[in-house]
């Protein structure tokens, strides 16, 4: 049932002199998923990515990409993957088309195939009109699109993206997310690093939270958040007394979807499995017990809570403001 994994990393380690960048890191990426490495700056996600794309040799452990060892079969790995670097790795004196032509030669594509592929990619990322302008005239978003086109040129099975939306405005960020989803839908495997919680949450099928060179937890954003024990209802009642709260608590406890109840000052924090069923049921119990509700607040667990739970410290990555969609 399960196809062979796209990437298998076992006990990977990388040290620079006395500094340990990653240690005993293991992970598996399945074919056709968007896999995210989430962590603050300096956590080791870029180091991991660089080892996977064969530009950095590991100090210990093994990494296999599509079944090929990144150390002993580096050339095979390189010909099967595409890479979109973190920095705008753009030569400002070359045009967009010239970037792609250069890479076409580096991937040893025959000239004719390269030309067809380049036209196709320029159309995909909407850069056709600007293809013959030098890159120093490009906006940040255009450079990012060119970066992505470069990463896709070899028609890879896996694309690695290092912080794909770092420093982009909201519009461009959403557009890049769409491209990445499109690629996944076309059967590509995507591995990306990010230090945006929102991005990891909305874009990644599965993610690994990485901190201090180690993976703390792996799973889909949904699983990870659900693993915290479900959504939270905070119920505050009018003229609250400890007796009233205890009475309500006793009434709610037997409900089937309730996992945990805590009394916090003058309100009840209830962990529930399904907000749709629990909300009306809790209100009904409160009515029945004559506890007039002052306010009821419902909060989904956030990825940030997952991060704090597994690393023991708050997330320090910069999180941009994303409009509610």
């Amino acid at each position: 049932m399960n196809p062979s994994p796209a990437i298998e990393v076992t006990n990977l380690g990388k040290t620079y002199g006395a500094v340990t960048a990653i240690e005993d890191l293991s992970l598996t990426v399945q074919t056709g998923e968007i896999f995210g490495l989430l962590g603050p700056n300096g956590a080791g996600k870029s180091t991991t990515l660089r080892i996977l794309i064969t530009v950095l040799p590991p100090s210990s452990g093994t990494a296999r990409v599509l079944g090929h060892d990144v150390r002993t079969e580096a050339d095979t790995v390189r010909s099967l993957i595409g890479y979109v670097p973190q920095e705008r790795a753009i030569d400002r004196f070359l045009t967009g088309r010239e970037h792609l032509e250069l890479l076409g030669d580096l991937y040893h594509l025959p000239k004719h195939d390269a030309k067809t592929r380049i036209d196709e990619l320029l159309r995909l990322v909407n850069l056709e009109e600007h293809a013959d302008r030098v890159a120093k005239t490009y906006s940040g978003g255009m450079k990012r699109k060119l970066d992505i086109a470069c990463g896709l040129l070899p028609n890879p099975n896996i694309v690695f993206l290092d912080e794909p939306t770092l420093g982009l405005d909201v519009q461009s960020r959403l557009r890049i997310w769409d491209y990445i989803r499109q690629l996944r839908d076309n059967g590509l495997t995507i591995v990306m690093t990010t230090n945006y919680l929102e991005e990891a949450d909305q874009l990644c099928d599965r993610l690994a939270i990485i901190d201090h060179g180690n993976i703390r937890v792996t799973g889909s954003p949904k699983e990870l958040k659900a693993g915290l024990g479900g959504d939270r209802l905070s119920v505050t009642i009018q003229h609250s007394t400890p007796e009233k709260l205890a009475k309500l608590s006793g009434g709610v406890r037997p409900l089937p979807f309730v996992r945990d109840i805590r009394e916090v000052r003058n309100s009840l924090h209830i962990r529930v499995e399904s907000p749709e069923k629990s909300l009306p049921a809790v209100m009904e119990v409160a009515n029945h017990l004559d506890c007039a509700i002052d306010s009821i607040e419902y909060q989904r667990p956030r990825l940030e809570d997952v991060f704090v739970t597994y690393t023991g410290h708050p997330f320090t990555g910069e999180d941009p403001i994303i409009p509610k969609m």
Binding site: T54, V55, R78, S79, D91, Y107, H108
Partner: peptide
């Protein structure tokens, strides 16, 4: 410094 070298080195050259 700008990462272009790394891009070149990630290709099968």
């Amino acid at each position: 410094e700008n990462g272009f070298l790394e891009r070149l080195m990630s290709t099968p050259i």
